[in-house]
Design a protein around this nucleic acid. Structure first.
Lengths: 210, 210
DNA sequence: ACCTGAACACCGTTCAAGT
DNA sequence: ACCTGAACACCGTTCAAGT
């Protein structure tokens, strides 16, 4: 019984039932073991979840060669998209990455990779650090809201649109007018919209910086 | 025993001990009542938490006159800052706002207010809707990561900096070089940096839109 | 030396019994 | 009609007892 298998199983179960519903008994059963045995490999549920978080970051896997042939704009966008795609594969697990600054081995590797990239494109150390934080926060923050515990499934989107339309137009003229636009934009497009805003803003910040 | 007093007490307890540690027994005790009695006012803990979320949105309170005399850039930034300040007053409660799209009365009022503002400054309905979503997601996403359950208290920032410095510079040249910048920027400044990127990006999006 | 069944002190939720 | 003590089926965690 190695730690890797425990973490893989834990992530699989979280993908199926969510963090709240994941039980140490459930995990122990899936591993044909008992809850007490699990405590021999980590100190409690919180530590287990931190290991799962780094396990997810290890899945991101940015292809290094590809990234280096791109402009900084394209590279930043590609890194953010790749990260976002990984988070979308594990919607129930996203809150784990917001719980703390990831300092596991895979988190370190990803941070090093992106900051190196920014520095190689002429970003100052200060601007690179703030850019990394801003982009990272944006991706995780977006994913947690669009794909977290209260996931807006397609039928909920329709429900929400109908709810907005059912409001009194006299009291809520703007909301009812924008009801379709507020609920019809595909999540990925919404993500890309904000990401492009950030990159466009960075373009200006970079000019001021140098 | 009215619902308002229950919600106020629940929020006060969440501010003190967090969502996870809030117990219905604890809440019942604080109200000199029993857990079973609480169920006469809402159906379970989740519904209680949704009511607390809208209670927080009610606290935001954007002064209408002030906002209307500003440029759209200043108004968007001011609204985001005001929202952010409210979330900072209730760090433990922020995850509640990420759990679902807020459709309580106070959430509706805030959305209506901001979309109206964008429309009055010439934004198209489509751009206004996406801007609202992008800004809202940014503020909540940032707050949840900087002030959520794994709050980076000042001493943790120092610890994190020392940790980055302790890494092997050969393996992590960029991270060790940026260690100070990654950990020394005040949270509010970091928030403002990303917000300004978004607003600068919006400036361009608005030009393309019209 | 390593593992684990069984227990501990909790939790959210329910309902029969009280007023 | 309204309220609630006490119970239910859980949970994360611990440790004495087994192999």
């Amino acid at each position: 019984m190695d730690v890797g298998r425990i973490i893989d199983t834990a992530l699989k179960l979280i993908d199926e039932v969510g963090i709240q519903a994941l039980t140490l008994r459930m995990l122990a059963d899936a591993l044909d073991s008992g809850t007490a045995t699990l405590y021999r490999h980590f100190n409690g549920k919180d530590e287990l979840l931190a290991l799962v978080a780094d396990r997810i970051l290890g899945e991101v896997g940015i292809p290094p060669e590809e990234l280096d042939s791109l402009s900084w704009r394209e590279a930043v966008a590609a890194a953010a998209e790749t990260f976002y795609d990984t988070l979308r594969r594990h919607p129930h697990a996203v809150p784990l990455l917001a719980a703390q600054v990831p300092v596991g081995p895979n988190g370190l590797r990803a941070r090093e990779r992106l900051i190196t990239l920014l520095l190689s494109h002429g970003f100052s150390v200060g601007l690179a650090a703030r850019t990394f934080t801003a982009i990272g926060h944006y991706v995780i923050g977006f994913a947690i809201q669009q794909h977290g515990p209260g996931t807006p499934r397609p039928e909920d989107q329709v429900q929400l649109r109908d709810y907005y339309h059912s409001l009194d137009p006299a009291t809520y003229p703007a909301t009812t007018a924008a009801a379709d636009e507020l609920t019809s934009v595909p999540l990925h497009e919404e993500f890309r919209f904000g990401l492009d805003l950030l990159v466009d803003g960075l373009e200006q910040a970079r000019r001021k910086d140098s």
